[in-house]
Design a protein around this nucleic acid. Structure first.
Lengths: 161, 161
DNA sequence: GGCGGTCAGTTTGGATGTCCAACCGACTCC
DNA sequence: GGAGTCGGTTGGACATCCAAACTGACCGCC
């Protein structure tokens, strides 16, 4: 994916959306992450029409997010599995899920829970943290890209034009 | 957004995608988060066709992600600003941006930088963390939804069907 | 006053994407 | 033999998408 070829601002966000931004793509990845590897299960879980799903899965395999793995030869059948890139997409799905729980869903249909020794079972409150310094990213000052543009860090303070 | 009305598995992820999953929507939010509040600036930054952008912005305002704020009356002009829901979307954009940098972009077109007292200026090495317990979420055990289905936590261990 | 430019869209016609129902071949189960 | 499963493909109707041109209200300049 050549970032420079994308329309608009050259940005990895646009590149990511090019690969997984089409309709049903992220839902298909969710189903595979949940352990549904077969075409019909993914179709049922997402509600996507079968022809659209077929096109999306092919594209996701081409993009390196999913891989096909045969599980039967008699009639040749293969399931879809996450690649490393696909597994790396799970935090993205979690972030969108949490946002949807808070702002899109009428009621928390599905809740992310977490169980740790220190805090027992608790609802997940996800945030991005910088592994180098341990600080949350949301508090970062906007900085400059190589091209000298401001860039995603904190939504910049409102400028009252 | 009634989760039960969505096709497929009732899930806040689907609800979220219903609001911000259409083409150009997240890029438009990115532009507003970067401080571009005017229609033409958003069009330039995203590269979206103007009619599509017009439709998306209207939908995002209806969804409560953006709000219009007048800044001129002579020809009536208003800019787009983030609501609380829109600001909450920033971690999602960061998640996709970091994923895109790693898996989608040919070269790191845009780099997240971070400046803190302890570590000076350094590239961001983002990790998705639970704010309640401080543990990384990627290691979380999958848990059950109210309806008794498994749910997004860790991609479940491969079951060799 | 006339000229060009900005701004936030809308309009146009044609390309592309999406949906749905039906169908298919190669199997398995009863 | 008949029904069902599985992973798709096909066809046709419909919606969305696109680039480019257009609108109409303003603004600054000379």
């Amino acid at each position: 994916m050549r970032v420079a070829d994308l329309p608009g601002r050259p940005c990895s966000l646009a590149a990511a959306l090019q690969l997984v931004g089409e309709r049903w793509a992220l839902l298909a990845v969710r189903e595979v992450a949940l352990g549904n590897h077969r075409f019909s299960d993914i179709a049922r879980g997402t509600g996507a029409p079968r022809d659209r799903l077929s096109a999306r899965l092919t594209a996701l395999v081409a993009a390196g997010v999913l891989e096909r793995r045969p599980y039967a030869t008699a009639p040749p059948r293969s399931g879809y599995h996450l690649t490393a890139a696909g597994r790396d997409l799970v935090p993205v799905l979690q972030a969108l899920l949490l946002w949807g729980e808070r702002w899109a869903a009428d009621r928390p249909a599905v809740r992310l829970h977490h169980e740790t020794a220190g805090h027992g079972d608790h609802p997940v409150d996800g945030t991005w943290t910088c592994r180098t310094c341990g600080e949350p990213l949301a508090g970062a000052r906007p900085t400059l890209t190589p091209a000298g543009r401001t860039l995603l860090g904190l939504p910049p303070e409102e400028d009252p034009r």
